[in-house]
Amino acid sequence: MTTSATAVSVPSGEKAGRSGPPRFAKTVKMLPLAPAIGLMLVFLAGPILYCIYAAFTNMALTGTGAANVRFVGLDNFRKAFGSSAFTNSIWLTLVFTLVSAIIGQNTLGLGLSLLMRRSTKLVRNFVGTAVIGAWVLPEVVAAYLLSAFFNDDGTLNVILHKVGLPGQDWLYAAPIIAVSLANIWRGTAFSMLVYSAALSEVPKEIEESAEMDGASGGRRLLWVTLPMISRAIMTNLMLITLQTLSVFGLIYAMTRGGPGTKSQTLPLYMYEQAFSFSQIGYGTAIALVMLAIGAVFSLIYLRGLNSEAA
């Protein structure tokens, strides 16, 4: 059964095309799509359209914007890009995504899946279980476990003291690094699984013949193995970037964006503006920025898939 789940590629019509039972008209045949389309129109397209509308208004839960909503043009966006809190959250989001997804999860996931091919079964199972265990945990539980781990009295400091290094309250001293490490801990399993699946399809003979030709381990990896899984690498990078951009619960439960705004990434800033400060219009403007970033990445991802599938 598992083999049936293969390539994520958009069928180019002809391939998937078969004729159904002849007595059904085309519209009737497509009718089963209706519930899915209905839900997606109301609860996905609806909010996005609403977002585009509200982002250009002064809508608020309290104050003047609550009584009479009016269009304010680009005011919300001007306010955002002029505000240091917004630029701060953009920077933190970049750091968070770069450190935890692109560098952390991706490299560690790839490294783990490469090492696992050389390790003994016992070690492989132990590490696999631990990494996937961290992934299966609910977001908030993972956040608590890592809050405890990084706390002043936590396990990390105990270890650091044992080896003679000074400890500190990591959530206070370096909150964005702490939440990034937490996201690596929680999310690496995804990359590991994607890369394990991809590597399992790389024929051993190719690597062996490269070894016969005298290519060293590092060279073999760089010139033989990695190019063969380049598509999986692109897909994985895109997906984990998109996932990481919208991480909310993990950071909220660990630091609430603090201390101050030192770990306030874009989703937390949006939440604070929209709900703690009741500025729905401004909050949706930030949401629109996030949606735009997500849409750009999603389109690049689609293009990649399409050109590969063609």
Partner: peptide, 19 residues
């Protein structure tokens, strides 16, 4: 559909709340 899988649901939450 594939495009939608990439959209950050977190960002949609403020308009969803309004809706």
């Amino acid at each position: 559909v594939l495009f939608c899988t990439g959209l950050p649901i977190t960002a949609v939450m403020v308009p969803v709340y309004g809706l």
